[in-house]
Write a protein that binds this DNA or RNA. Structure first.
Lengths: 338, 338
DNA sequence: CTGTTAGCGCCTTCAA
DNA sequence: TTGAAGGCGCTAACAG
């Protein structure tokens, strides 16, 4: 098959040990002449170490697992890109898995990646109020295998992970406050799943802003979505039926759904309805009516998560959770009421 | 560390061999009682085989490498998603690498994935007229290691890969013909790199359609882009300066750039200029003026590439290159001239 | 300075 | 029906 270290050793008349020493740049011992000769023959024979064998003995695979719900979602695609680049820059290779809606699938990937020797796992799974057993099992198995994990939210007290997160509550607050300042009083929301902590946090920010403005909270103005395009499409008629003048979509994808639905109803954004999104994906600038949105920096968060997992792998100190702060980017989709 | 097969063997009083036999479902030998007991203790101890060790001896890692230029690009994100799902369904895990513009980076990933024991590689790298040495080296090293490769274009005769491709020429032809049928006579193009075969093919289709319509080809109407948003932004003023009435962008991303630029010039699509894209990403339907585009099915092509690489790995027959045919999806961005 | 000897965790003949 | 022994390719003590 492939050329092994043994072949190289035989070819240049040294022992396997010496060859290994040289090829791994162990500075110690070994004469310059031997080193040169070994390097030369290894190169000539196009020797490449078998990482499986190396990993088996060193316990280092230079591999990081990354598990996301959906690769084709803008936010995760950007994040994956940043993670992959940072990992590469540090000599790590990325194993990729996506689980869609399935906790079970996520847990399977978790186990699989650990079995494959991943030295760390970046796990982009939103926490819900009551995590499933499958989900807890992920963290449990990682702990047992001493594989560090980075998540994008703070889990419960029994969940051991380094956290790189975002102030979703503040994001919800900023978005709502912006619409309030523009004179809107009936503001609809397209939320994420009702059990999802990051969605609940946005909703809290929304309520707080309303409260500060002295506007009573009306649960009818919340339409429960799932962060997918269709949620936005379905939310628009519902919310317009509630006489909202503005819609805060808990992510950009759902805001795009609102856009799409608006076209089919012959409605004009922002004249007939203001829209604020959440994520600030690059599409927002390209739309005919650019989308006002909360900046949720996928690239920076991905980068930071990669940095953290690498520090953990190296046993370097990692400090407190990293919390990214939201900011608001105002564009044409939100309009000041007369 | 983790529990090994040896631990399980000791715990249930059988030999490592027997345990291995049972855990790998080798039907032969082993009493039902032994089998049951072994299975039970393995589960209790939460035994998970170490894939590195398994791979070292079986030469099977159940891993497939996937190398793309840019993860966050719609087209590749969708493709990656499909590949990941198909691989998972067949018990393969995906290693992900992106190389941006760098042939060297691509080659590094290639070597790295092979060293990590990838059993096959899906390589989404557009071919250029004169492939660099780094690039040829990728295929060479794969051949040497007997690792099958799937590409999305037909390479030269010395490039050994299974091909899952698309009729780019026909795509260029259809897009152009559509605009001609709508009465356009000066049709600008935003192309990809001038050396890139798939861009050249689109341009050939464009020329053929013009020729059939008896319109002389004017090289000034080609603006050389790079498949990125900015190319489209820059192309618009250039092409309008050449008095085109329609623009055929060689991918959707550049078409979006044209959209964005159009807004800043206060131009209306399709009134002032028709636009046709290429890829038909899901955004096209969401735009205020939905984008007419050539359907370039990322999901299907990704799926097929995964199927092919798996067949190759299994040593199953794979037949001729798979060629996807383009179709045109007409939407609001192209307009019939009076 | 260099080679010998043990494994890493697992699978697989071969022998019992 | 089961177990012992060897080896995958490599690193790392430990000797020379």
């Amino acid at each position: 098959m492939r050329v092994t270290i043994k072949d190289v050793a035989r070819a240049c008349g040294f022992s396997v040990t010496t060859v290994s020493l040289v090829l791994n740049n162990k500075e110690c011992r070994v004469s310059a002449a031997a080193r040169a000769k070994i390097l030369k023959t290894a190169a000539e024979m196009n020797y490449k170490p078998n990482h499986l064998a190396v990993g088996l003995v060193t316990k280092k695979t230079h591999t990081i697992g990354m598990i996301v719900p959906d690769i084709s979602n803008f936010h995760f695609a950007e994040m994956i890109k940043a993670i992959e680049q940072e990992c590469r820059a540090n000599g790590y290779i990325v194993l990729l898995g996506s689980y869609g809606e399935s906790d079970e699938q996520a847990a399977e990937y978790f186990a699989e990646f650990i079995a494959k020797g991943a030295e760390g796992i970046i796990f982009a799974k939103p926490f819900v109020k009551n995590p499933s057993r499958m989900e807890l099992q992920c963290y449990e198995s990682a702990r047992a295998a001493k594989v560090p994990v980075v998540t994008f939210e703070q889990g419960g007290p029994d969940i051991h992970s380094q956290v790189v997160t975002f102030d979703y509550r503040e994001g919800g607050y900023l978005a709502t406050k912006h619409l309030l300042e523009y004179g809107h009083r009936r503001i609809g929301c397209v939320t994420g799943g009702s059990e999802m902590l990051s969605s609940i946090a946005r909703a809290e920010g929304y309520r707080q802003a309303l409260e500060e403005a002295g506007i009573p909270f009306d649960p009818e103005l919340l339409y429960e979505g799932d962060f997918g395009l269709n949620s936005g499409i379905q939310a628009l008629p519902y919310l317009l039926g509630k006489n909202v003048t503005a819609i805060f979509a808990f992510n950009d994808m759902m805001a795009l759904g609102v856009y799409k639905a608006a076209r089919s109803y012959n409605l004009n954004i922002p004249r007939d309805c203001s829209v604020v999104g959440f994520d600030d994906s690059f599409m927002n600038e390209i739309l005919e009516i650019p989308l006002t949105s909360i900046v949720h920096p996928a690239t920076e968060m991905g980068l930071e998560s990669a940095r953290q997992i690498i520090r953990l792998i190296r046993g370097e100190p990692v400090g407190d959770p990293v919390v990214f702060r939201p900011s608001l980017r105002v564009r044409g989709s939100s309009r000041r009421l007369a």
